[in-house]
Write a protein that binds this DNA or RNA. Structure first.
Lengths: 150, 150
DNA sequence: CATAAAATCATTCGAAAGAATGACGACGGC
DNA sequence: GCCGTCGTCATTCTTTCGAATGATTTTATG
């Protein structure tokens, strides 16, 4: 694992840094709390980073925003919830479908949605099935013609 | 957030623990490295745990907007010849691009255009290049946003 | 709490798509 | 006649998709 290596290096560097600053802190009679707090903070951050990167996950604030229909001159798109529900398309599937329409690859979607590519493929496959599409371009075309996508 | 509370408590407890063991370590003339290493390890673990568990939670900000369907202006599509020419897209390439947007596969396009699949791929590749796309879905999206396709 | 619906992830495989080249004939302009 | 553009086709290789399943885990709900 690359991460372990990085972790090791970081740890080593920190030990060195510790040595360097050790005397200063001790001499200046600084309380060890500050010293420890710094290390604690640094390592906590490192730990968080590690936990996140090792699992490939990210802290996400998912924001589901429904299109706000401003006085748009030429785009009165109203997604048809009835159709969506009629086809049994789940929110996540719809999300994937939208990203497909935006031209993202499975890998890109996986990164943006913070899930594995396999999961994306599953959602994609299901929504294809529900739309009766066998290709993503076809799925987009069908979805748009049915007011499922803008 | 519960995690932050837990984190705070843990941090507090550690500071206390630090105070408790501070003298022992200092008195025994133990090198601060060991001391720091312990804290570092503990906090790294905590950080990892934090990173992992926090990602399990998803903050969903749901913004519900009431749709105000305006009378459809029926936007008439006018392909922009200028842009097409600016990109150097040939008629044949445009044709392929349109069929791609309709969701056809390379094979289907080949049949409809009465050319080989290789030829279709060539046209597709070229138009992708000119559009700066690396996927057909992306090409469609780009083309539509540039008024090249309906 | 039990259950159903969603969401997640994995594995395997074959098909499709895309990149990179090279080539060749038709056509039109200079 | 020569050159540039367009359309055509082929080959090779890598990547991406999509299908088919099965399993596990959340999440919502009765």
């Amino acid at each position: 694992m690359r991460h372990l290596a990085i972790y090791g290096v970081a740890a080593g560097a920190l030990v060195v840094a510790m040595r360097v600053v050790e005397y200063r802190f001790l001499v200046v009679q600084h309380s060890v709390e500050i010293y420890g707090a710094l290390i604690a903070t640094a390592f906590a951050a490192l730990g968080i980073w590690l936990g996140l990167t090792m699992t490939g996950r990210k802290v996400v604030v998912r924001e589901v925003t429904v299109e706000v229909p401003v006085a748009a001159p030429a785009a009165p798109f109203v997604p048809d919830p009835a159709r969506i529900e009629a086809l049994g398309i789940t929110p996540r599937e719809l999300e994937v479908l939208q990203l497909i329409a935006e031209g993202l690859s499975n890998k890109e979607m996986a990164e943006r949605l913070c899930v594995s590519e396999n999961t994306v493929k599953t959602h994609a496959s299901r929504v294809f099935d529900k739309l009766g599409a066998s290709r993503r371009t076809q799925a987009v075309q069908l979805a748009k013609s049915q007011r499922i996508l803008a």
